[in-house]
Nucleic acid binder design. Structure first.
Length: 821
RNA sequence: GCGGGGAUGCCGGAGUGGUCAAACGGGCUAGCUUAAGGAGCUAGUGGCUUAGUGCCUACGCAGGUUCGAACCCUGCUUCCCGCACCA
């Protein structure tokens, strides 16, 4: 067996030293292919990465061969929580942890044979990169797209610090397992993504993205039309949002989010203790967890005034109202909303029916659940009798007239909270001055370098470095303090695809001309876990950059391909705790990168979830090995017209398969072509080269090896993709093959029947074909081999044929008669 | 809870309105090959039936649309993914 590892290393080195995949702007048509860049975890590459990069690399190699100037870079999303967790848990500095992880990632990615232009590498935790984060933050600030407001955060009193959702387990701190996590309201930085909500929604139509991702983005933005109604509490206006103003006469209580920043304003002295107890009980702010909890609430002691009825309505603090959606408070109509109904039953709050069923009368005392259907209004003053769908508009315009409310558009999309009270991120370039207030760091002072020397484990790490914190105010030169929050790492990934174009620029984030040539990304590739957040932030960022004159594009990613999730062979998620993780590097070392790549792409359509298979990798490896052995014995000469037909047909089909990410189907056709090649005595150099080229994007090393061994000087990686010669494709050969399969199948079937029924063994087969079909069945050798019988073929009109039972008279067109003995 | 996606032979998966018992791979069975094992080659692999034929039964469950459904619609079961401080 060939030493595949050695061969692969040889070509990886050759590509590297010759800079085979280096790209620059030129006159050719460009194509920008990008995989979502990884977070370099200490655990190294996992199979999902290998899948992701193989999908991209195949496409990059294919596009390159078809004549495009391909930009295909790789970078590292290097800031983030795991590095900081390592610092807290094992005392390693995040920087060294990250550097090591990146070095390991690069080594492993090289072993996969990926054709990146490595000169374009970028690492987000380096000041050369994150200084531009700070630069863009200042630009956002200039455009008034940045603001500060209070928001809830998980707080561990023992760590004296904010915790990420991931650091909260069952409401307890991840380090101090006996300590309940509390909610703390902190002043934090927000970016006004909602400013672009409409545009983000409208442009979804133009994206060549999977429909499901587009639907998720639409739902995430969640544009809905509704009515804002002003309720008064303690004499102050509290506008609330509802899509059901028709039910306003049925409001029997209000619920304010327990995490609402102004909650305490409406809590009475008497109820204070109880509300505080309730708020404290909500251990984690994670909305996901909150929504899994039972709907619970506690009375605040205050009453709201219904603007239409002037009724006094009790206000509850609840755990199921989202603080950041709408105004963080809802009106509750238990008769016509199931969640409100359950809450009302639990706390014995009255229920009031205001929409009557067409066919029977709803009794507030007796209804078993909320009635959410249509009907006529009742108990609704002057609106009684209106259909509830009409009443939505009627009541809204009435409120509008009286200045008590108005029609509004509401989005689920919320502004982007980018403050993180953590160390391993981009410092937010802001300074707090007692005299001047909040002062942005002047551009010329960028970057604000993240100091290396901080203490982990207690409080905000950045606050522990006095030299970092204490600065002079840029305005008044007086004593001031730096912002110690860092940025959400999604900020880093919102524009990295622009930096690849000009990753070494020290004067500006990127050269606009280079952007003009390369952007947008033509093909983006990644997992569906980024369906909304990362993709939404990146889209927002591009729109902001466009409006600030940095780019001219509207959208960052023209096409998006979503790879499926790769499970373990038992169908479960690959995870350390289940012990079913397959490491790509182990597989490469055991079999070879080409085998791994082939197997990953053979498993299933790359956009579908699939299961890893140990048997599959062996099968792929066998195939690679067979190809290698075949080339050892290959005879270059003249191709038969049959193989020419097959080669050209395969070129045609595989080209379209790869272009449409149907790699799995393309591989099948390549396999079938190979089987046909094996049967030939000799084959032309051109055809055998076409075969190598078709296989090359999937198995780059072995094809590079044989490309050179059959006498080529250049890299196959840079060769031209074959073009199918349609005139060489003939269906005749396929019909012949099918006829042959049919006759072999028939002979085997009869053999079996004779054996079973008559208990006789047969050793000879006589086939009687009608004269004009004789040529179709001329491949006696193949029939012999496949049936394992002596085979003789006669034309039915052959006077000397051997036909003891007169079977030949059964011959029909397309179905020769058979006699076995 | 909200949002998105899936369920096809023993297994991984093709197939999205007729030509389709289901490509291709794996497993298994038989034959050839081999000192043996492995590898390789050939065939078979839903059921019944048959000198190469014919019939029946299938695409999570239950309905519906259609001349015709794995594919379209509705409901259900079940699994997976996301839900804003993991990235």
């Amino acid at each position: 067996m060939a030493d595949f590892l050695k061969i692969e290393k040889k070509w990886q080195k050759a590509w590297e030293t010759k800079k085979t995949f280096k790209t620059r702007e030129n006159n050719k048509k460009k194509y920008y292919i990008l995989e979502m860049f990884p977070y370099p975890s200490g655990a190294g590459l996992h199979m999902g990465h290998a899948l992701n990069y193989t999908i991209g690399d195949i496409y990059a190699r294919f596009k390159r061969m078809t004549g495009f100037n391909v930009l295909y870079p790789m970078g590292y999303d290097a800031f983030g929580l795991p590095a900081e967790n390592a610092a807290i848990k094992v005392g390693e500095h995040p920087e060294s942890y990250t550097k090591k992880a990146i070095a390991n990632f690069i080594k492993q990615q090289r072993a996969l044979g990926l054709s990146y232009d490595w000169d374009r590498e970028l690492i987000t935790c380096e000041p050369e990169y994150y200084r531009w984060n700070q630069y863009f933050f200042l630009k956002l600030f200039e455009k008034r797209l940045v603001y500060k407001k209070k928001a809830a955060a998980n707080w561990c009193p023992k760590c004296d610090t904010v915790l990420a959702n991931e650091q909260v387990h069952n409401g307890k701190c991840w380090i101090h397992k006996d300590t309940s996590v509390e909610i703390k309201q902190l002043e934090q930085w927000f970016i006004k993504t909602t400013e672009y909500a409409d545009e983000l929604l409208d442009y979804i139509n133009d994206l060549q993205w999977p429909d499901r991702i587009k639907t998720m983005q639409e739902n995430w933005i969640g544009k809905s039309y509704g009515t804002e109604i002003n309720f008064k509490i303690k004499g102050k206006n509290w506008p609330i949002f509802t899509t059901r103003p028709d039910t306003i006469y049925g409001v029997t209580f209000m619920v304010i989010s327990a995490q609402h920043s102004r909650l305490m304003e409406i809590v009475t002295e008497k109820q204070k203790a109880e509300v505080e107890k309730f708020v404290k009980k909500l251990k984690s702010v994670s909305e996901k967890e909150l929504e899994d909890m039972d709907k619970e609430g506690v009375f605040t002691g205050s009453y709201a005034i219904n603007p239409l009825t002037n009724e006094k309505i009790p206000v509850y603090a609840g755990n199921f109202v989202i603080a950041d959606y709408g105004s963080g408070m809802v009106m509750a109509v238990p008769a016509h909303d199931q969640r409100d109904f359950e809450f009302a039953k639990k706390y014995k709050i009255p229920i009031k029916v205001v929409i009557q069923h067409e066919d029977y009368e709803l009794d507030a005392e007796k209804i078993p659940r909320a009635y959410t259907g249509a009907g006529k209004l009742a108990n609704s003053g002057e609106f009684n009798g209106s259909s509830n769908t009409d009443a939505i508009d009627e009541i809204t315009s009435y409120l509008n007239k009286k200045n008590l409310g108005k029609k509004v558009v509401q989005y689920k999309l919320r502004d982007w909270l980018i403050s993180r009270q953590r160390y391993w991120g981009t410092p937010i370039p802001m300074i707090y001055c007692n005299k001047c207030g909040i002062v942005p760091v002047p551009e010329k002072d960028l970057p604000v370098v993240l100091p290396k020397n901080v203490k982990f484990g207690k409080g905000n790490p950045l606050a522990t470095n006095a030299k970092f914190v204490n600065v002079k105010c840029p305005k008044c030169k007086g004593n001031a303090k730096r912002e110690t929050d860092t940025m959400d790492t999604f900020f880093d990934s919102s524009w990295y695809f622009l930096r690849f174009v000009d990753n070494k620029n020290k004067k500006e984030p990127f050269d606009k001309n280079k952007i003009k040539y390369w952007l947008p990304v033509d093909q983006y590739i990644g997992g569906a876990e980024h369906a909304v957040m990362h993709l939404m932030y990146a889209r927002f960022f591009v729109k902001f950059l466009r409006d600030s004159g940095f780019v001219k594009i509207d959208e960052p990613f023209t096409r998006l391909f979503n790879q499926g999730m790769l499970h373990a062979s038992d169908g479960q998620k690959m995870s350390k705790s289940l012990g079913n993780v397959i490491n790509p590097i182990d597989t490469i070392e055991k079999y070879s990168a080409d085998s791994l790549r082939l197997n990953l792409m053979s498993l299933a359509s790359p956009d579908k979830d699939s299961n890893w298979s140990d048997k599959g990798i062996e099968s792929s490896h066998k195939f690679i090995n067979k190809i290698y052995e075949y080339f050892n014995k290959i005879k270059i000469g003249k191709s038969s017209s049959k193989i020419e037909s097959k080669v050209n047909k395969t070129i045609k089909e595989v080209t379209s398969d790869i272009d449409n990410f149907r790699y799995n189907l393309g591989i099948i056709k390549i396999r079938m072509l190979f089987e046909s090649l094996e049967e030939e005595n000799q084959v032309s150099k051109k055809d055998i080269e076409s075969f190598l080229k078709l296989l090359h994007p999937i198995c780059p090393h072995i094809t590079e090896e044989w490309w050179s061994k059959i006498g080529n000087k250049n890299f196959i990686s840079l060769e031209k993709w074959p073009i199918a010669d349609e005139s060489k494709i003939s269906e005749k050969f396929e019909q012949e093959e099918q006829a042959l399969n049919k006759i072999v199948g028939d002979i085997v079937n009869i053999t079996r029947i004779i054996k079973e029924k008559q208990n006789k063994e047969v050793s000879k087969a006589f086939i009687y074909v009608i004269p004009k079909e004789k040529e179709i069945y001329s491949d006696v050798k193949s029939i012999k081999k496949r049936t394992n019988l002596e085979v003789k073929i006669f034309a039915v009109n052959d006077a000397n044929k051997y036909d003891p039972q007169g079977k030949s008279k059964n011959s029909k067109q397309g179905k020769p008669a058979i006699y076995l003995e």
